[in-house]
Write a protein that binds this DNA or RNA. Sequence first.
RNA 1: GGGAGCGUGGCGGAAUUGGCAUACGCAGCAGACUUAAAAUCUGCCGCCUUCGGGCUUGUGGGUUCGAGUCCCACCGCUCCUACCA
Length: 852
Amino acid sequence: MKEYNPHEIEPRIQKEWAETGIDKIDENSDKPKKYILEMFPYPSGDIHMGHVRNYTIGDVLARYWRMRGYNVLHPMGWDAFGLPAENAAIKHHSHPAKWTYGNIDTQMKSFKRLGLSYDWDRTVLTCKPEYYKWGQWLFEQFWKRGLVVRKKNPVNWCPHCKTVLANEQVIEGRCWRCHSEVEKRDLTQWYFKITDYAQDLLDGLDNLPGWPKRVKQMQENWIGRSEGAEIDFVLCDADGNAPENPTKDDIITVFTTRPDTLFGSTFFVLSPEYKGLDDLIRGTKYEADVEKVVELYKNTTDLEREQGDREKHGAFTGRYVLNPVSGKKVPIWVADYVVAGYGTGAVMGVPCGDQRDFEFARKYDLPIVPIILQKDDKLYDQLKDEQNTVVTSVDWDQAMASEGVLVQSGKYTGMIGGKHSPAVEAIIKDLEAAGKGRKKVEYRLRDWLISRQRYWGNPIPVIYCPHCGAVPVPEEDLPVRLPDDMDLAAGDTLATDEEFVNTTCPVCGRPAKRETDTMDTFTCSSWYFLRYCDPHNDKAPFDPKKAKYWMPVDQYIGGIEHAILHLLYSRFYTRVIHDMGLIDFKEPFTNLLCQGMVKDANGETMSKSKGNVIAPEDMIKGYGADAVRTYILFMAPPDKDLQWDEDGLAGVYKFLNRVWRQVYDLMGQAGEATLFEGARAKVKPEEAKKTLIRERHRVVGKVTHDFKTNSFNTAISAIMELSNAAGAYLRAASADTRDEAFCREIAEVLVKLLSPMAPHMCEELWQTVLGHTDSVHLESWPTWDPEKAQADKISLAVQVNGKVRAHINVAVDAEKDDVAEQARAAVEKSTAGKTIVKTIVVPKRLVNIVVK
RNA sequence: GGGAGCGUGGCGGAAUUGGCAUACGCAGCAGACUUAAAAUCUGCCGCCUUCGGGCUUGUGGGUUCGAGUCCCACCGCUCCUACCA
């Protein structure tokens, strides 16, 4: 018998696979398809354990489904544009491409060393003109569909990365990439109108049963739909006089989810960034105070804004509006607790019903009555006397509950108020009839800011002409290529590259300038899964026929950090491409698995600064790729975080070793190296064989079931159980009492079941020991007979009042009455002197005897 | 503040979805083999016990013949989100 030596086997088998082209995809297959995809990596140095976990899961699934008779698409590529490459280039005085391709090469070698079964001829690199050309083409298609806008807005600016960021890329006020604090700047930028798809993206979540609940929840929160109304308030003078026929300029509109509290609105608040604010205060004595609030707001970072309960700051503008239902004059304030970008940037203050408004009213001594929501009678009685007086001090320290019965609310008094309440419906109806308001749905989702002031990205294919404005680059001129001769360290940018910038207008032919911003890298990753279906197409981003065959992705695997970012953008792109008529589905990923993180033995995340990083390479050097793969799946369910523990890896290595020896032993090739007499078990060979037959069928069923639910950890423990049963049989049966055909069957089943996880070892055993000429990975998955997984006699627990008191052995198909009788006899001792009330027989499980 | 999820031995984790809690593995203990060690193999391994048994899935209650699993309350942890009106 040869020793198990992964370091000799693995590279040799890998070479063999590469030579025979076992992983090449056949597009003309008549088998059903399966598209297994892992989120492609960013080429930042060599791979880490998180990659190993991610790509092992995908590879195991791909190998499994191939054995199940599917035509499997399992591609790999790199998300190759991005800032780290630029930073590295600046540091080393080289070009981002050099760093990027170097890392891709390193990572590809590591992936090959892990034995991942990709068709490397279908690799997609997003930084190649063949790919980014179609990203530009899609940009122009979006443009044609009215989904591209250029607008001036307050935007998130990362001072470290020197570029703007999308809302989704600001995490707790910091840049998602470098964690620098983000600043606000007013800039003109390019946007994709993802908000046009807000409702569709939200609705689509209901059609994704194969997605983790928490990911859907996160997207739902991010889209943030709320129903309410827009209400028009008319400006009036200090005496409450308003123009009879107000024009647009006389009206300020608010958005509220609680129009039912309109009677309780005692003041009005504008965001410091409210667009018409200047016009209201210019030249008045209030201007200075308002300016102070505006300045304070501008100097507050998002990070500061997120600190718990911040103190609110505001100032009176000197202006008033009329409450559209009560006709009362209310003062307009400016306050920093009103967000500019949401709703209309204006809010009606209802201090008795809203905690924020209450706090603001308290601080600036604004009226809190009339109270318009009543929760208990006492509170209302207390306020009754004061109905007609303005009272600024009320006997409580927080706003009243936001739900209850409306009081002091004109004709709505007595109705039930609250979100989605009858009062809301009634007031909206009346406001609509009076032309003073309308039903409105707001979303938290903002348009996707896609321009980046960086070099290493996909150029935005736009030309600015002094006469024609911004025009897209004609399709036949695509791609707009990134210039190669760049010295970023010397300060070169696209904007300083005269040759790149200066061009002619495609419309009028006069001199014009190119856009020098590039697109967010997330635009590259929003459709790469479609490109994999047809990676070499130079006429189109992909052939719709090929996409129809392969898409959607049956199983997508990646980290939870993309729950909103990449997964939302991809759903958006897929919808637009659907609306372009190129595909007939809206959801790109049918099933999604978000794998947990790989942490160190203390449960800490691995990082270079902590010095606790475990290099996959070192683990492979120690135990081989098969052991690392099997272990990372065995340690925990795939969606849970796992703690790396090298002792556990050694344990799995031992297990592989045991299977190795067992297969030799089962095939009668173990020679002297096998068991010694002292290990002979006392079990009879026939008994051990019976058990092993049962285990063989049960375990194949179990593993097959576990693959359906991505429970790789329990699949592996089931294979360990089969190996344990095989070991028991080998110890019980001597060489001359063995059933050779049966032994071979067990060996083949073991090798096949384990082959997705430990592909090299199983390939070696399959060919060398089991004597096959073809690859085990081209074999079909073993079948099983549920009947044979069942023992003919089984042990049942006998409970008395729910407590196990005895065990009985019965035939599987025993009659209920006979089982009950046998059970009662078995627990006579416990039931003596008591009355048996009931006997519950659960077939194949247990018997419960109820006594009094 | 709002939302989601989780809580099982010394550790990682299992439990066919309401039916024998602790599968499988790690660590540990004892033994076989060995001059010895490693490797391998065997057995033990939740807690308490007066050896009859008793207790045990964060805590307390409930539903049920039966609850780790379902319901209610509380405690603790994790993640997401946040002056979003």
